[in-house]
Simulated assay, not measured.
Amino acid sequence: MGRVGSLLLCGIVLSGLVAGTGRAADGAVTMNATVDGAPVGADVLVLAPGGSSRISVTVHNGTAATRYVKTIRLSGTALALPFFSYDTTIPFEVPAGRSVTRGFVLDLAQLGGQATGLLPARLQVLDANRDVIAAVSATADVRGSTWSVYGLFGLALAVLAALAWAAALLALARQRLPASRWRRALRFLPAGVGSGLAAVVLLSALRVVTPTPVAEAVLVLGCAAVALVLGALTPPPETVEAPLADPEATQRLRPVAGRGA
């Protein structure tokens, strides 16, 4: 049994070494990049519209096959919506186990009308099929206009949220809210969700909060919860009791009804 155990132990160790070697050979493709000499991902990436930025991308191929890069993309999103995206076609290949660096100048003249404030940004390399080979993420500080698409989107969300609050409060003032506490809470829910979405965009445009998925969830769910609580705490509509019938008037009407019969 001792020899059998030793042989089994050696087999397990050897199989682990072989598997580890296979995993090392089948590594991943990674990348790092700089914009105007600043590393992407280390600090806030400042993107100033009206000029050009020098972008340098280094792709590391840890796989056993040559990878072919066709496009380099710089994009920014918020609330899962893309607000700016720049594709630059630079075909090159990265041999197995090698690293290749490419640089180019990106014109950001149109960025001022697309976004402003803090936005999550990604720099990606894509193959001929538009599949992402590698990517690096950063927080972009876009020095765009308040009247950009992103800024107007935030103002529109704020207006919609204000209208939702006005409708809910007007229904409260006119005693038109449902009698059920749960239904009254749901009546305020759209106003809370709208406030959360508006807060995500406006705080981003004001460079207060970066709209990461975690920050978006906290703001939207937090505002929705506050609206639900406020709706549940509103008083139910007052019920108006029907006036009691006058017994004397009823007695006076009886003989008249008899004569008519």
Rank of each mutant, 00 (worst) to 15 (best):
A185Q: 07
A198G: 10
T210I: 12
V218I: 15
G192V: 09
S204Y: 06
A227V: 02
R181L: 10
R174V: 04
R174D: 14
L118R: 08
A162P: 00
P237H: 12
A164P: 02
V149A: 15
A156W: 09
F104D: 03
S180M: 07
S137R: 14
G196Q: 11
L152C: 04
Q110N: 09
R174N: 14
L169P: 00
L203G: 05
G151I: 06
L230N: 04
L189Y: 05
L203F: 13
G117L: 08
V218M: 07
W147A: 15
G151D: 06
F153K: 00
V201Q: 13
L163A: 13
A191K: 09
A224W: 02
A173G: 14
A198K: 06
P237K: 12
V159K: 03
L233F: 12
R143C: 01
V220Y: 06
A171P: 00
V209A: 09
R176M: 06
L160E: 06
F153L: 11
A134F: 04
G154R: 03
S148Y: 07
S145Q: 15
L197N: 04
T239S: 12
R122A: 15
L206M: 13
L202H: 08
G117T: 10
N129H: 14
P190T: 12
L119M: 15
P211D: 07
N129Q: 14
R130I: 03
V142A: 11
A109F: 08
A115E: 03
S204D: 04
V208Y: 09
C223W: 07
W165Y: 11
T234W: 03
A171I: 01
S137P: 00
L202C: 09
G194N: 03
G231T: 02
I133M: 14
R143V: 12
L169N: 04
V240G: 07
V125Y: 00
W182E: 11
C223L: 13
V125A: 11
R207G: 05
A199G: 14
A138D: 13
W147G: 12
A166C: 02
V149D: 08
L119T: 10
D131G: 11
R184W: 10
A135M: 08
P190H: 07
P237E: 10
A232N: 11
A166E: 05
